[in-house]
C-alpha cells in the first residue's frame, strides 16, 4: 500500500527524501494517469511521452503545490491539459481532413495487436472515438475512473450540472452505437 498523499508531499519537501517521495508519487499514480492519457491518444508511444512530460511538470511544480487541493486532482489536471495540448498540436500539424482524421483514429485502435472486432470492450473503444473530444473526456473520467462530478468539475473547470449532462449524452450515444452493431 502506498503512503498517503500528505506523507508523500512531506517526503518531497525534505531534500534527503525528495527523490524517494517523488518515485512513490509516480508509482502510486502512474497507472491511473497513463490510462487516462492513453484512452485519449490511443497510441502507447504518445501516451508514454505525455506521461513523462506530466511527471516532469509535477517535479518542477510540486514545491509550489498548494496542499488545499488534492494531489490526485492536481495530477489529473496536469495530465488532462497535457493531453489536450498534444491533441491540439496534432490537429494543427495534420494535413488530413476532419473525417480522415477520425478514420485514422479508428485505424489506430484497429491496429492494436489485441484488437478483436467481436469483443464488446473494443466495440466500446470504437464507439467512444465517435464522441466529441470534451464528451469523450468526461465519459472516460466518469465511466472508467468512477470520478465524482464534483472532482471532475475541479479538473475541467466546468460546472457539475454541465458535466452530468455531458456524461448522459455520451452514455446514451454510446449505447445507441453499441446496440446498432
Amino acid at each position: 500500500m502506498f503512503p498517503s498523499d500528505k506523507e508523500l508531499l512531506s517526503q518531497f519537501s525534505i531534500s534527503s527524501t525528495k527523490e524517494k517521495g517523488f518515485t512513490s508519487i509516480i508509482q502510486k499514480y502512474q497507472e491511473k494517469l497513463y490510462w487516462h492519457i492513453r484512452r485519449m491518444v490511443i497510441d502507447h508511444a504518445d501516451a508514454d511521452d505525455i506521461l513523462q512530460n506530466v511527471f516532469i511538470k509535477v517535479w518542477k511544480g510540486l514545491e509550489n503545490f498548494r496542499e488545499d487541493s488534492q494531489l490526485y486532482t492536481w495530477l489529473y489536471r496536469i495530465s488532462t491539459n497535457e493531453t489536450l495540448s498534444f491533441l491540439e498540436k496534432q490537429k494543427r500539424n495534420s494535413t488530413l481532413s476532419l473525417s480522415d482524421m477520425e478514420n485514422s483514429w479508428e485505424n489506430k485502435i484497429k491496429a492494436d495487436e489485441h484488437f478483436d472486432s467481436n469483443q464488446l470492450e473494443w466495440k466500446l473503444q470504437l464507439a467512444i472515438r465517435q464522441l466529441p473530444e470534451k464528451q469523450r473526456l468526461v465519459f472516460n473520467l466518469r465511466y472508467f475512473d468512477a470520478m465524482p462530478y464534483e472532482e471532475m468539475s475541479r479538473i475541467l473547470d466546468t460546472s457539475e450540472g454541465s458535466l452530468k449532462a455531458s456524461y448522459h449524452h455520451a452514455a446514451k450515444k454510446i449505447e445507441m452505437i453499441l446496440t446498432s452493431y
Binding site: 509516480i26 502512474q30 497507472e31 497513463y34 490510462w35 492513453r38 484512452r39 490511443i42 502507447h44 508514454d48 506521461l51 513523462q52 511527471f55 516532469i56 517535479w59 492494436d112 495487436e113 489485441h114 484488437f115 478483436d116 469483443q119 464488446l120 470492450e121 473494443w122 466500446l124 473503444q125 465511466y143 472508467f144 452514455a171 446514451k172 454510446i174 449505447e175 453499441l178 446496440t179
Partner: peptide, 25 residues
C-alpha cells in the same frame, strides 16, 4: 445506458511487458 454496466472495464489495449515496473522519468 444499461449496456455500459455489462462491459468489462479492463483496458483491452496492448501494453509493453513490465511497462509500469520499468517506467523511468
Amino acid at each position: 445506458a444499461p449496456i455500459l454496466n455489462r462491459i468489462n472495464k479492463e483496458m483491452p489495449f496492448a501494453l509493453p511487458d513490465y511497462y509500469f515496473d520499468q517506467l523511468a522519468i
